[in-house]
């Protein structure tokens, strides 16, 4: 199994990550080992096995619809890298 550069670039973009050339090379190497080992996934017969997605088979519970205090504004904005007196600020949305 060979992952092409395009696939790797798309995947890292989807994670909003830009790999350096060195990192790309390293990841390609890691993936080679991975896909070799992961062949087993396609080979073993998983029969009717259902995907489990969680470690517990328990059920959820519900909460009553009662208002609880929210954070004070100053605490909400405290950790923000960029904010004015009421809102978080983000750079220009549109790229052009």
């Amino acid at each position: 199994m060979q992952i092409n550069d395009e696939e790797l670039k798309n995947a890292s973009w989807d994670a909003r990550i830009k790999l350096t050339q060195q990192e790309e090379k390293e990841l390609h190497e890691q993936l080679q080992t991975f896909f070799k080992m992961a062949k087993v996934l396609q080979k073993i017969d998983l029969g009717e096995a259902e995907a489990s997605f969680g470690a517990i088979k328990g059920y959820n519970t519900l909460r009553k619809d009662i208002i609880e205090p929210s954070l004070p504004l100053q605490l909400s904005l405290e950790n923000a890298p960029d904010a004015d007196s009421s809102s978080f600020l983000v750079p220009k949305i549109v790229e052009e």
Partner: peptide
């Protein structure tokens, strides 16, 4: 972690 997250996305 960058490589690991890219792997997860892949």
């Amino acid at each position: 972690l960058k490589k690991f997250l890219t792997f997860g996305a892949l």
